[in-house]
Structures are given as C-alpha cells and as structure tokens.
Computed example of a mutant assay.
Amino acid sequence: MLPWTHAAFGYLLLLAVVLLLGRRFSRAELLAVLVGTQLADVIDKPLAWWFDVVPSGRSLGHSLLFVVPLCAVVVAITWYRRHPEVGVAFGVGYLTHLVGDTYAAIYAWRTEEFTFLLWPILPPYPYDDFVGFADFFDGFEVTTPGLVVFTAAAVVGVAFLVQFIRAPWLDTARS
C-alpha cells in the first residue's frame, strides 16, 4: 500500500469503530491514527533504503515484536494522561498498516510473505529492491485500478481534513 491508502484505511476503520461505539472522536485521535498508519514505513524505509541498518523496508517497524510493545507503551502513556482513546487510535492506525501490507498475501495465503511480522526471529520477505524515490516515480504507471484507489484515498483524505479542521461535531471538550 502507498502512504495515502494506509492513512485512508486506518482512518476509515477508526471512524467505523467510533460510530459503532456511538461516540465522538477528538482531533488527537485523528492525529494519532494518522501517525500510526505511517510510522512503520517512516521507521523502516529510511533505515533500509538510505542507511542500510535493517535488511528490508518491512522489518523493524513492521515486526510484531516491536509493534506490540510500542502500542502498549503508547496506550499506557495515554491512559496515564487520561486519554486512552488516543493510544487506541494510534494502535488501530499502526495495526491497519500491517494488515494493509499483508492483505494480498492473506487473500492468496502466501504465508512465506508474513515472515517480516516476526523479524528478527524470521528473515524479512525479500520483496523490495528499492533504491530511492526516483525509482518509484520512474516505474510508476497510471492504471484504472490505481486511479480508483487514488481517487478513493483522496476523497477519504478530504473528509479527514474537513473533520480535523472545522467539523463542529468533533469532541473538542471532554465532558
């Protein structure tokens, strides 16, 4: 998945959970889910592609051995600060990132591609040979499915921004 589709997926899942619980959500929760959806790649891509510190763009930040303790610490900190919902939103965003990176392998049940989830116990799946952003844009092709996904992510992104910036129903003052 690309960054905007990770963000859209995490945001939509948080929105569904909040609506099912019949409550409102705060700007802090919106920000937390957005950060959560991006953090795995923010950690792994530079460490693998630019600094050669980890073996893959899906290793440390994508490993459940890192993610679960990180989410637990974030929830503990936000619980202590009396806003555990913000920590939960972060966890929702982070976990949707992992699901987004594995959904095709789950669908086809290609279990060998799940190894990055237990890095460094298991080796990361060798999926990327990325060198830089120029490589991405050089190989980028505009396709109908790609345009549909980009358009859907853009619509969700606009909805997110509207809610974040000026939506009157956001829970800005806790009662």
Results as ranks from 00 to 15, higher is better:
V149Q: 12
D41A: 14
V17Q: 05
F140A: 14
F51D: 04
L65K: 02
G22N: 13
F116V: 01
V142R: 13
G93F: 01
A108T: 11
R82D: 12
Y94Q: 02
F136M: 14
W50R: 12
G61E: 13
T102Y: 14
T78I: 09
P126R: 04
D138R: 11
L39Q: 10
R82S: 05
T111L: 01
L12C: 13
V35A: 06
W119L: 00
I106Y: 02
A105N: 05
D171Y: 10
A48N: 07
R81N: 08
F90H: 06
L70Q: 13
I77S: 03
V156T: 06
V18C: 10
P69A: 09
L64P: 05
D128C: 08
A134G: 00
C71M: 13
L13Y: 15
G100W: 12
Y107V: 02
M1L: 00
V67D: 09
Y11D: 11
L98D: 11
R82F: 01
F137E: 07
P123N: 04
I165H: 02
L122W: 06
A8D: 00
F90D: 14
P120N: 10
F130L: 10
L170Y: 01
L118G: 03
V142Y: 15
V53H: 06
E29P: 02
A40K: 05
L21W: 09
Y107L: 05
L20C: 03
Y125H: 06
W79L: 14
D135T: 07
R166E: 12
A173R: 10
Q38C: 02
Q163G: 15
A89P: 00
L64V: 15
D52K: 07
V131Q: 05
C71T: 13
Y127D: 07
V142L: 14
V18R: 01
V73I: 13
T111M: 00
L34W: 15
A167T: 01
G91Q: 06
L64R: 08
Y94P: 08
P123Q: 06
F140L: 15
I121C: 05
P126E: 12
L117Y: 03
P55W: 03
I43A: 02
G157K: 10
F9T: 08
T144M: 14
W4Y: 12
T111E: 00
I77V: 15
T151S: 12
T5C: 12
M1S: 01
F114K: 13
V92G: 09
G57P: 08
L20D: 04
L31Y: 03
V68M: 13
H62L: 06
L2S: 03
A159E: 05
A28L: 11
A167L: 08
A173I: 15
H6G: 02
F116R: 04
L2Y: 10
F137R: 07
G139P: 00
S63L: 11
A159L: 14
R174K: 04
D171T: 09
T5D: 10
L12V: 13
P145Q: 02
F114T: 06
T172G: 04
L14A: 06
W109C: 01
M1C: 12
R58W: 14
G100S: 02
V86W: 07
F160I: 15
L170I: 13
L161C: 08
L14C: 07
L65N: 01
V18T: 15
W119M: 01
D41C: 08
V92K: 02
A89T: 00
L19W: 12
L122F: 09
L118H: 00
H6W: 01
